[in-house]
Design a protein around this nucleic acid. Sequence first.
DNA 1: TTGAAAGCGGTACCAA
DNA 2: TTGGTACCGCTTTCAA
Lengths: 345, 345
Amino acid sequence: MPTRQRPDHPGPATIRDVATAAGVSIATVSRVLRGRDVVAETTRDRVLSAIEELRFTPSRLGRSLAERQHAASGIVFPDLSGPYFAEVVLGYEEVASELGRSVLILSTHGRRAAREMVLDLAGRVDGMVIFGRTVSDEVVEEVAAPGLPVVMLARPTIGAVDSVNAENRATATALTEHLLADGRRRPVLVGSPESSPDVAERWDGMAAALGAAGIGEPKRVPAGFSVEEGERVVGELAAAGELGPDGHDTLLCANDELALGALSALDRAGVDVPGDVAVTGWDDVMAARYAGLTSVRQPMRELGATAARALDERLRGDRSEPRHEVLPTQLVVRTSCGRHEEETP
Amino acid sequence: MPTRQRPDHPGPATIRDVATAAGVSIATVSRVLRGRDVVAETTRDRVLSAIEELRFTPSRLGRSLAERQHAASGIVFPDLSGPYFAEVVLGYEEVASELGRSVLILSTHGRRAAREMVLDLAGRVDGMVIFGRTVSDEVVEEVAAPGLPVVMLARPTIGAVDSVNAENRATATALTEHLLADGRRRPVLVGSPESSPDVAERWDGMAAALGAAGIGEPKRVPAGFSVEEGERVVGELAAAGELGPDGHDTLLCANDELALGALSALDRAGVDVPGDVAVTGWDDVMAARYAGLTSVRQPMRELGATAARALDERLRGDRSEPRHEVLPTQLVVRTSCGRHEEETP
DNA sequence: TTGAAAGCGGTACCAA
DNA sequence: TTGGTACCGCTTTCAA
């Protein structure tokens, strides 16, 4: 077999180089590449060895442009920090890549350029998953308008797009009832419902239980989602003497990190947990277990995986009606809200 | 102004639709799009309003193909699970997106198709970061050979590619010396050095300290990186009566999750920590703090951010010599290895 | 079974 | 200042 020529142009070998080397047309090379059409055995072999010799890999760009599809999908979230987003993204990546799609991630970091970033992403994927607290409804519709399949995550749906959520209300009610049964009567809600649809639903569920128990509108303290935020706002509450025997006896935090920060602040302020104050979080991250924090377990990986499957169905046209999935969550009671059945770490 | 015609073809508007609508050539549209060349004010306005009216967004694919660049980069890791990878990826995404590049993530999940997946990724990006324990050296070279910039993360470099690592040896030695100073003499290394270059370096550093103290080759117990693995292998050690007063007195674990699992197993087996056995981890994940686990803090975000910057330098041709960065780590002593200065969570 | 050629949606060079 | 047009690398008719 004669030695193939190297391409006489810079950069990696192209389909034309292979065609020349194998003495066939690019159409034929494309055929053996795709494997769909029939190609004569001997021709195929010649092409194959030319491919091997030139170390040819078809250009994704060329292919995608011709096929009019990226074979990729994206996921947009506000921030990857904390176990919650990381786990959801992992669950998403795992399924998406199994389904043959590359995954692009985009964290908006609360930047104002979020719209532009999401629009740019839209030009690189066949569909995308968007977390609730990243961009406005208008942007979601702008993205979905040209027919790009979109799945909302942790966000009640918008228009006809799919959505995947974890159950919030009912479990929040159950959590609150548990605290009420324990004699807690003066709760504070720590977190900002307007910052996240999930949190808003949790607050609703909690408020429902409190209302049913004849407890009026509880105090609400706005806060971000970090340990530092928890330390800060609860530190301030403690300093103001609003916690303990003379004040509030329960801290219902919007997520675990906030609750963990609350725990630190309380410890520093000398407030006994759960004696003086009960603390609850949400998400059941790994640290919650070791901190003895009562929380609510979300199926984080499964949330991402479910979104990936929903998107896939749309992408392959298996389904045209919007679907709204709600995954179950589970109350996990630990020592931070009283001495109940303890769970060994 | 006359009403523009909608494109007479399916799908989003193209540059040709805009050209037709504005009554100019596609070259002119491209000019106003790029903003580089000079275009007459009036012409520009006409083009701009045509763009607006048709809701035209230039195709990334078309542009990338013509420009011969993706404006995207990728990061490959074995698994996103656990805070370590998540944080590194976040740090990477933050910087990469700031530098104007989209980011694709690829988790190999230890799948055997890792090579193909990485090669596919290579066709979608301008450069990529690869974690040490994902693909073989051959694959790395195969990817880098066509001139694709590659940065290795948590892996001594291969050939002329850049690398970014966290300091392992020295801190591992310091950690071990701390334990020795505390009277610990019968250590076990929990984890598999062959599974990760990081772990191999840690073991080296530990072995160095042990050797200097006249302690021979320590026992080694292979294990993965999960809490479950830690529970399993340490549970077996305990069941075999190899831990405590009659056996080993120190568990040097390859990462925090392993150590956390070890803690559970010891608790279950009734072995006192740190009384009978000291336990150390690595990474200093959030849970370590609450579990009172002695660990070593790695600058996870910074690891990813540094890799992103190194890749960027290569991508813009700012630098041609390989660079090898080693980021500092820090020993964090907590109660799991003795009652020293405690850190309040 | 194979080849020629027309796209896919842009960029950029060369003329006008 | 603008237009014509040759690519970029691949897929896919349509003919031969």
